[in-house]
């Protein structure tokens, strides 16, 4: 498992956004840019072995060992009902690790992008045409240069129904 350059340090190095807007760790899933608040991110890693957890929800890829802590890996593609990843073994996916309620989760994404602090004026609420599944998870959309950044609500992202 390898750890990417320290995200928190990178975030600190940046000038805080003047209008008090949020700073995001961005990542790409199925060519869409997403962001989650930088304060929530513990670590970015590239999972070696993901231990499967049979009978768990399909969104759950399994568990990994992050420095002695067991971290639940969530496949963001499955969570967002996107087609499966078609990368090769050389081009592995990244895990964006976050903490929620004393537990650790790692979000499996295609690739991790820059740290961004879009201005509050660039924020839009979810378009009404957005897929209801996405609308539930997305907290809003930022119009940034060259594309759109979908800000995700972590708690709702982690709210995975357990099917018995």
């Amino acid at each position: 498992m390898s750890t990417a350059p320290n995200i928190a340090a990178a975030a600190n190095a940046r000038r805080p956004a003047p209008d008090g807007s949020e700073t995001f760790v961005t990542f790409v899933v199925h060519n869409q840019l997403f962001g989650i608040p930088v304060q929530r991110v513990q670590d970015v890693l590239m999972p070696d072995v993901i231990a499967a957890v049979p009978l768990s929800a399909p969104e759950i890829s399994g568990s990994i060992n992050l420095r002695g802590r067991i971290v639940t890996v969530i496949d963001v593609r499955k969570r967002l009902a996107l087609p499966p990843y078609e990368g090769t073994a050389q081009k592995r996916r990244m895990g964006v690790t976050i903490e929620s309620g004393a537990e650790f989760y790692s979000l499996l994404v295609d690739s991790v992008g820059d740290i961004m602090s879009p201005g509050a004026h660039e924020h839009e609420s979810n378009p009404s045409t957005l897929d209801p599944l996405w609308r539930d998870i997305a907290e809003g959309v930022y119009r940034i240069e060259g594309g759109l950044l979908v800000a995700l609500d972590i708690e709702r992202l982690l709210d995975i129904a357990i099917k018995f």
Binding site: P54, L55, S63, G68, I162
Partner: peptide, 27 residues
């Protein structure tokens, strides 16, 4: 024995999970 994540708690066949000596996670 480490407790399983709350996302896995309802499954009913797991008592917990653990990290083996070789670092791998198993149920």
């Amino acid at each position: 024995v480490k407790p399983v994540s709350h996302l896995l708690r309802g499954i009913g066949v797991y008592a917990g999970n653990t990290i083996l000596g070789d670092g791998s996670v198993i149920m």
